[in-house]
């Protein structure tokens, strides 16, 4: 019950964080607290610390593999150009989205039109 109360307290902080309007604070209250909450649930609800070490090694291995995948792919996805390549589709999607928002056309103008081109597949 005490752990549950702590988790709810952390939830309130993560919801309240963005109201301060400070980007760094929002990042910490949203994602930092998510990590803390996940740790608390894994330790006190799943009792992973009382389980054989094999389980921790197994799960950590999976998280590392996931991190490797994200780390290896992220430069291609997050950057839209490099020394010898340019992701034209992604750049156009960004431009379209920003233009639609600036024009106040809302989601309806952007929707549908952006979808087929939004995936940054052309390198």
């Amino acid at each position: 019950m005490k752990i549950w109360a702590i988790l709810l307290g952390l939830l309130v902080v993560s919801v309240a964080g963005p109201f301060l309007g400070i980007r760094v604070v929002t990042l910490i209250t949203a994602f930092g607290i998510a990590l803390v909450k996940a740790y608390i649930v894994a330790k006190y609800f799943m009792h992973i610390n009382l389980e054989r070490k094999f389980v921790t090694y197994l799960l950590v291995t999976m998280i590392v593999l996931m991190g490797l995948m994200v780390g290896a792919v992220s430069p291609d996805v997050m950057k839209h150009d490099g020394a010898r390549w340019e992701n034209v589709a992604a750049k156009k999607a960004v431009e379209r989205g920003e233009a639609a928002a600036a024009a106040g056309e809302g989601h309806h103008a952007e929707g549908g039109e952006a979808a087929p081109h939004a995936a940054p597949a052309e390198h």
């Binding site: 998280i63 997050m78 960004v94």
Partner: peptide
């Protein structure tokens, strides 16, 4: 535990992809 291990990769893949695209597409904030 094995199911959860496989789920980490499944959800990790989806959330990791989302995160990368989100950082590369500022217009998603709209």
């Amino acid at each position: 535990w094995w199911v959860i291990a496989s789920e980490i990769v499944i959800f990790g893949g989806v959330l990791g992809s989302y995160l990368m695209h989100r950082l590369g597409h500022p217009e998603w904030s709209h």
